[in-house]
Design a protein around this nucleic acid. Structure first.
Lengths: 363, 363
DNA sequence: GTTAGCACTCGTGACAAGAGAGTGCTAGGC
DNA sequence: GCCTAGCACTCTCTTGTCACGAGTGCTAAC
């Protein structure tokens, strides 16, 4: 997806491409040659621009909806723009200040900051924003409980050292009393507290540790380690979103099927599960245009994402979703600024958090 | 909101109102007198129907968008229909079977059943469906943890006897080590496990119980009891929703502001917080038409809700959201059937659940 | 390589006209 | 007193036509 074509086009053609994208993004209608020469200092005539546009169309960077219409950027055009032509500047000082102000207005917790960040983001870029709740990427077991639910069901509730929680149901053949389960949980808690998913796995593999264990213990342990793993991979992290109305109002989502697809994206988180882990392990802002990385149906829709967080502790993903006709430069700056700001806030508020087993919280 | 007006109208007028609603619901366009006499066996002429319609309009049950248009039901018209004219029949056998089939297809947990229920509901009524996750309305403390997050922050994580969890941050003046916190938590857990919010409150008020307690204990206890209370009132219950696209496609939500309102309803749960507790304490299906109980902006939108669950254990709310022009009879039957089915499923799968302190799970 | 000029294509908006939908009213019938 | 046929009136919706304008591609000249 990063083929970084050159397309063999002249500087002026590149410039024209930029202009077409800029104009199309802001006015949502095909851009004409005359419009380009009149609005920008190109020092050439519209005829020349037309020739250049014909060339840009030949290489596939722009398309013409019909004869006698202006040109519209293609997906490849946007991609080229994002990779070679765009120079996202930092967000203007006053906007930065306005945003910071909203955060400092109220005293809040990490989750709510993230929620507020999606809200602010959706308003600054006028499109939908989303973010995953901040989670540690290296979760240690703090405590777990086994609860008898019915004859054959046990619920396992887990608390991580950073306060994350997870629940899962376990099916068993025999019947267990709550007392037996509590005893088992107590026993295992003492042995496993402070361990990561991997450490639990290797603890299980040491033969010494298995003799005093009840028959359901192995499945409990497997489940436990699996749950910690899911937490680490952020598979269970809630996804906040806001500003859907902003993009559903865009002309390109007026058709029912398009709208359907967008809503699918937000109603069912599973579209993200493949993307988020890859974002969370990268630095910088990632731009996904059209259906480049999402399912086929995601045409007409682009996503700008970045990781936020504190090292491997308490990290998440945040970004904006909009039509392919999106102000990429502004989106990228906003997402970058917001992820930075959020990271700083978390840093300040949770300084030296969860290091080691959480046995101290000194500076 | 339950004034149950009579309006002094004849049987035929009532019948005509029913027909207008039925026709308008299915075709979304004003209903004409001729359309009524031709489609239904009324044995009167269209002129007579017109006279009756004039009367129905006079009392405010129907309105005319403009001269020379048919009639459209008003909000009061719908309300009258729902209360006096509608006879929701049980869902057809084959539909019931189809729905049950989808549930029995897969082995699942309570949460996922509820999620599946919203999904099925949204498809059977072709509109948006929502449900709150099943929660106990009488939560007993199973266990809680205190986690040192930073100098002045402690996270309190609570596990209920039914597996529900809650987290909350606590601000403190002094600095506590994780060891101190764990010791305190251990001490209090031993004393409070199995207690409800109220029982904790009264335990706190017994003077004997306060001597051996560290200085932060009071705020821990207050927080703890508050968190249990919120769980009981379902304030923290997640709200699942599905099928937004179904209703956003309806002609009445094509205007941006309307769409905005609907999305607001689903993006921010707070609109529901006032309604859900009142639904969960009632039996039967509740119909909210227009802005009767929601904020002003909720015009053009109706909600059909019902409680599901097992007595006071593991209950929730489920229902459908659609335009006021909604097939109320079908919605009511569907919601009723679904809530019944879900209750049965939970019953069978969690038989004799969480009774008392959860110390046994025998039949 | 650039540009002026021009022919050609297509979408768009305005406008009129007509059809048709539906009503309210009136006068007459049971 | 209730019902109905008939009719005039009002509005909306559709359709067709037409002219305009936007935009292009091409060609020939600079």
């Amino acid at each position: 997806m990063e083929q970084s074509h050159d397309y063999n086009i002249s500087d002026r053609q590149r410039h024209i491409l930029s202009i077409i994208i800029e104009e199309y993004v802001s006015h949502a209608r095909p851009v004409a040659s005359e419009q380009i020469v009149s609005g920008y200092q190109l020092n050439v005539s519209s005829a020349t621009v037309r020739n250049d546009m014909a060339e840009l169309e030949r290489v596939g960077l722009i398309v013409q909806p019909h004869t006698s219409a202006g040109r519209v950027p293609s997906e490849r055009g946007y991609r080229y723009f994002v990779e070679n032509l765009m120079h996202p500047k930092a967000l203007p000082q006053d906007e930065q200040r306005k945003i910071r102000h909203q955060f400092h207005q109220v005293e809040m917790e990490a989750d709510e900051w993230v929620r507020l960040a999606t809200s602010i983001l959706s308003r600054t870029v006028h499109s939908a924003a989303l973010a995953t709740a901040p989670r540690s990427t290296a979760v240690r077991l703090k405590h777990f409980e086994l609860l008898a639910i019915s004859e054959s069901r046990i619920m396992l509730v887990l608390v991580g050292h950073d306060g994350t929680v997870a629940q899962q149901m376990l099916h068993v053949d025999e019947e267990w009393t709550q007392e037996e389960l509590s005893a088992l949980a107590g026993h295992l808690n003492a042995a496993l507290s402070g361990k990561t998913s991997q450490e639990i796995d290797s603890w299980v593999n040491q033969p010494d540790n298995l003799h005093s264990i009840l028959t359901i213990a192995p499945s409990v342990l497997v489940t436990l380690s699996g749950m910690l793993g899911k937490l680490e991979r952020h598979e269970t992290a809630e996804i906040y979103h806001e500003g859907l109305a902003n993009i559903l109002n865009e002309p390109e989502f007026r058709q029912p099927e398009r709208m359907q697809q967008i809503l699918e994206l937000f109603e069912h988180g599973h579209v993200w599960t493949s993307i988020i882990p890859s974002i969370i392990n990268q630095d910088g802002v990632q731009v996904i245009i059209g259906d480049e990385a999402m399912g086929e149906g995601m045409r007409a829709c682009s996503v700008v994402l970045a990781r936020y967080g504190l090292g491997e502790h308490l990290a998440g993903v945040l970004g904006v979703v909009g039509p392919t006709r999106m102000p990429y430069s502004r989106s990228v700056s906003s997402v970058r600024y917001m992820s930075q700001l959020l990271s700083d806030l978390l840093q300040k508020s949770y300084n030296s958090p969860f290091s080691g087993q959480g046995e101290t919280q000194s500076e």
